[in-house]
């Protein structure tokens, strides 16, 4: 497996996004429910160009990064698995011919629903209740951030592939 610039960009993005989500944004006073899932946006931007298997693999790896960055998830591994499913779901919307911007956003919406659905499900199992308003707020924040970030990430990905750096 060769190391490519695109791979390094991916690793850097996921690490930076994980730290931003867990440390910087809460420190800046962003309420927890309004922190967008930046890692998920990165996974979707790559998955929607390459398909479900790649999306699942990337989602699992990114999910593990998110788990390992403190606060460590509990139970360890659950978030990685849901992010894997979300990556696979986003990858299933791939169309190599399509350059539409709506498609990545739809993939992000689908993936976010998968992640937040998993979170709501585990909350129901663990606590018997779920903060639906908080989950909808996170969904909205993630989609809003995706509206800004997804075109940039997709464009960077395509540019790197075109220059044979991917």
């Amino acid at each position: 497996m060769r190391i490519s610039l695109l791979g390094l960009v991916r690793v850097g993005y996921v690490l930076g996004a994980a730290l931003l989500m867990t440390t910087v944004l809460p420190r800046l006073g962003v309420p927890g429910r309004l922190v967008p899932d930046l890692v998920l946006i990165g996974v979707v931007s790559s998955a929607v160009l390459r398909g479900p298997v790649h999306g699942a693999l990337l989602g699992l790896a990114a999910g593990w990064v998110l788990e390992i960055v403190p606060p460590v998830g509990a139970p360890l591994g659950l978030a990685a698995l849901t992010l894997m499913l979300a990556g696979a779901a986003a990858g299933s919307l791939r169309r190599t011919s399509s350059r539409s911007f709506v498609r990545p956003l739809a993939a992000l919406a689908l993936a976010a629903v998968v992640v937040l659905g998993g979170r709501a499900g585990s909350a129901v199992v663990a606590e018997g209740s779920v903060d639906l308003a908080g989950i909808l707020a996170t969904l909205t924040a993630t989609l809003a951030a995706g509206l800004l970030l997804l075109p940039v990430l997709v464009a960077v990905d395509r540019a790197l592939v075109r220059r044979r750096l991917g």
């Binding site: 699942a56 699992l60 139970p75 360890l76 591994g77 698995l81």
Partner: peptide, 18 residues
């Protein structure tokens, strides 16, 4: 696909262990 299956199994193992 093989790598994905391997990693999923490993993740599940960690999940169950936790």
């Amino acid at each position: 696909r093989r790598l994905l299956a391997l990693l999923v199994v490993a993740t599940l193992a960690v999940l169950v262990a936790d």
